[in-house]
Design a protein around this nucleic acid. Sequence first.
DNA 1: AGGCTGCCTTCCAACGTTGCAAAGTCAGCG
DNA 2: CGCTGACTTTGCAACGTTGGAAGGCAGCCT
Lengths: 337, 337
Amino acid sequence: MSIKTVSNVVNDHPHVRPAMRERVRAVIDELDYRPNGIGRQLRQGRTGLIALAVPNVTSPYYGELTSTLVTAARARGLTLLVEQTDGEPDREREVAAGFPVRLVDGLVFVPLSMPVAELAQRRDSTPAVLIGEHGEGAGIDRVTIDSVDIGELGTRHLLQIGRRRIAFLGDKQSLRSPVVAERIAGYERALRAHGVPVDPRLSWVTPEWERRHGYDGTLTLMAAHPDVDAVFAANDLLAYGALHALRELGRRVPDDVAVVGVDDVEQSRYTAPTLTSIALDRGVMADLALGLLVDRLAGVEGPPRLLTATHHLEVRESTSGVPVGAVPAGARAAAGA
Amino acid sequence: MSIKTVSNVVNDHPHVRPAMRERVRAVIDELDYRPNGIGRQLRQGRTGLIALAVPNVTSPYYGELTSTLVTAARARGLTLLVEQTDGEPDREREVAAGFPVRLVDGLVFVPLSMPVAELAQRRDSTPAVLIGEHGEGAGIDRVTIDSVDIGELGTRHLLQIGRRRIAFLGDKQSLRSPVVAERIAGYERALRAHGVPVDPRLSWVTPEWERRHGYDGTLTLMAAHPDVDAVFAANDLLAYGALHALRELGRRVPDDVAVVGVDDVEQSRYTAPTLTSIALDRGVMADLALGLLVDRLAGVEGPPRLLTATHHLEVRESTSGVPVGAVPAGARAAAGA
DNA sequence: AGGCTGCCTTCCAACGTTGCAAAGTCAGCG
DNA sequence: CGCTGACTTTGCAACGTTGGAAGGCAGCCT
């Protein structure tokens, strides 16, 4: 039989006589033959591969995002290939410039630090989607979240439980990325709306948003401003570091200092005390992003599109003091010792 | 100029006159040309792609492993492609059988549940490396850890701080995988060595090894056996659940119940109390695994090889009661309330 | 000046697949 | 019995690259 007939069988072409179809299938099983993806792709010009470029896979937030994307991609017959940028501008530039060897059909990119102007001048013709606040005006499809509202929501919650000296943990010294700028804008807006003076010294700079930076940052913050009665951390990891530092300093949470995070990753339901956080819908974000990308792969033209995923506040012990479980308060107090 | 000359320039072949080389480079820049990976790969028969199949990317342990592998692969000029099995036998079978379309050069696989006999009968000719305890006798290169010793080490530590009613959290009901079997073997060996009777009722079954299973498991465990004075969790996530449950129950850690985990992921330095855990060297494991795989890709023949990565105990507050930071004990006591 | 040598460039073929078109087969019908 | 038409199979070409071999050119030696 001819090679082409095999191809017809493998691709379920019509006009193949059942007898022949059976014969070919038998031989395929016999030889354990698999079509060579490379040849197929060369012919079709597509690989079915999508690259995902995130700062890292280790942070719970990006890990959960990656996990969702892997699953969502598979559901659409695509395979995900992972790159890590560590949020460094040069690594992000490499991703934006495209891989030196053309291999993927599309790119899902979470940029953090590279200048948006450079993103906009990207010459690589591979379709891309951005996820996150970074990329306003880059002319690329994007799925984002409303970080101004996130900053406002978290701060308002702290104001409502009576806090007045609220620190924002996770500012950036140089290069204030949109993420930070927006969250701080929301934070300040909420303060003003409540008639609480904005003290710029309480926008506390951390080099990155990892646990240890939250820990170090909170130690120095509390030393400099002992009157701080709430910490609004830019993400959950910083908040974990803050909780650890506060415990070490003997400050009770939330009694002395309340803490709010952003991302609401799984771990936040298990810290002691459990962490109040603003939940972002990662599943929806991944799905939306992949949908935008698949459109472009299918040849959909048009101006860059922008979608915004929703978020909501999950109140837990670090601001309410109320334990999650159905256990008497007395028992809880004893537990903490 | 001819296509082949361009190829020669791109591949740094000798015998290209500098003038011509320059001319070609200029045009490449001009057109922003990139070699099409597919054509190249078709010619060379290799894709430079490595598949990684893990249960998920969300668990800190696998997340950190994935992250390390991505970096290690990149350092060797390979790109990592991620699949998730959720630890389900059928999904693992698919991975073992090979992707329907031949596309990757090699496979790094962390199986958890599929029968080893089936792994051994794998017909796919793509080189593979296994990571973990699962796969003994499959005839495939593997990087593992000594889980018997891990079980023994953790248990001995608990015995040495005076605990006698030590529960093992994370047994599996049916299908006791090698991971569990080995850790429990070590646990029982340590108990016997100390003359402490082995109580099989304290090998507590959990459906999976996620935080919530540790939480649920610990609640039921402590209800059934209130005299338990230590919990040896099969991994850190289970331990976080255990810490949460114990806090809710008003049991002090480590005073009433000491807790030990396995994996020593980043978060364990930040829980309250910080978690004693057995650290596995993920970086080394990833490197070893990739080394084995690259050998096979280079055509190295020979019997299956087995490497064992090291581990060590990180003692923290959940067994020692001693805080990590340089803060007076009095401050710490107040902090916990 | 002719031939030779050595370097540079070009040509050809092949990797494995699939779209298209041509060739082949067969049954039914006039 | 041959023709028509529908259905089935096969052949060819092309996707973009690179190894190997052949071709071209210039300079040098005699």
